[in-house]
Design a protein around this nucleic acid. Structure first.
Lengths: 156, 156
DNA sequence: CCATATATTTCGTTCGGACGAACTAAATAA
DNA sequence: TTATTTAGTTCGTCCGAACGAAATATATGG
């Protein structure tokens, strides 16, 4: 049963490595945020806009769980720092659409230089077939984490 | 050059998926922390203790960049919530060693149930060979992120 | 021993971000 | 039109976490 033993070890190692990778991602994210002058809330909101595109203030409130007043303040800060723009909704003048300012975000690209280079070198070390496996894993792992986050966030 | 085209696409997809996976990890981490009654600083400190084992207050200060006074408060809070213990260092009575209370952390295991099940199912869908690739990727990716975090954190 | 250096804590203060309540403006219903 | 609902903002307040400076306790060098 050497095959089984190998697999058990493998799974344990994956558990550990996955944990450490998550951890490293969190730390990196925090470090990048700090360098960009963003707090956690601001960072998460930008990520939200990155993933979902422009959102109204109300949508941001719903997604982040913040009170409307807090979202106004949040948008103020992000706008002041140049990361987003407020755009009036033509269909409904009450709404405020918050658009990410991609140019400004991109201007911090140098912060990621080392990271990007490292990743490219890493990818370069794999065959196409292996990269397909990694891609599949990343996508499904992200889905699982988002699902789990949803479960934790929905009050139970 | 269909091979090259495939690879270019693959790399672009990996870039995107990697980003989203990181993001999902950050969100999940934050959600777990919120459920455990921890703020970001407390979470990061526990992660630190997880990775490096027991640390003195001063070491925590050095690793987190917090002022000594802030670390005292941090340890107070973590201790009050049951996540760590203060232990006097026998070799040097001035030092305070902070140990993680693993039992208490483990008691939140149910929060991770969905996540863990999901991951197990995911891993089950791969061959040993594929898992080796994923393991290698996770480890090297974590190292790259830690390296990049270090670069960002060291004042430059 | 005594003086000085080091590790941590205590104290008082400050600051940012989150909030509820009241307000403004726009949309919709009557 | 006028009344009501909805979206966001403003305002005043509160709370937690971070800090510097001073205090405490222990270690180390002269």
């Amino acid at each position: 049963m050497s095959r089984d033993a190998d697999r058990r070890e493998l799974l344990a190692a994956l558990h550990q490595a996955g944990r450490e990778n998550s951890n490293a991602a969190v730390m990196f994210h925090a470090a990048v945020g700090a360098r960009m002058g963003l707090n956690m809330t601001e960072e998460k909101s930008l990520d939200l806009l990155e993933r979902e595109g422009a959102l109204t203030a109300g949508e941001i409130a719903a997604r982040t769980g913040l009170a409307p007043a807090s979202v106004s303040g949040l948008i103020d800060r992000l706008e002041r720092k140049g990361f987003v723009r407020r755009v009036r909704d033509n269909d409904d003048g009450r709404r405020v659409i918050v658009e990410m300012n991609r140019e400004h975000v991109a201007s911090f690209g140098t912060l990621f230089a080392g990271f990007v280079d490292g990743l490219e070198a890493l990818y370069a070390s794999y065959t196409n077939e292996q990269l397909h496996v990694i891609l599949d894993f990343l996508r499904r792992s992200a889905a699982i984490q988002r699902e789990a986050t949803g479960e934790l966030t929905s009050q139970t």
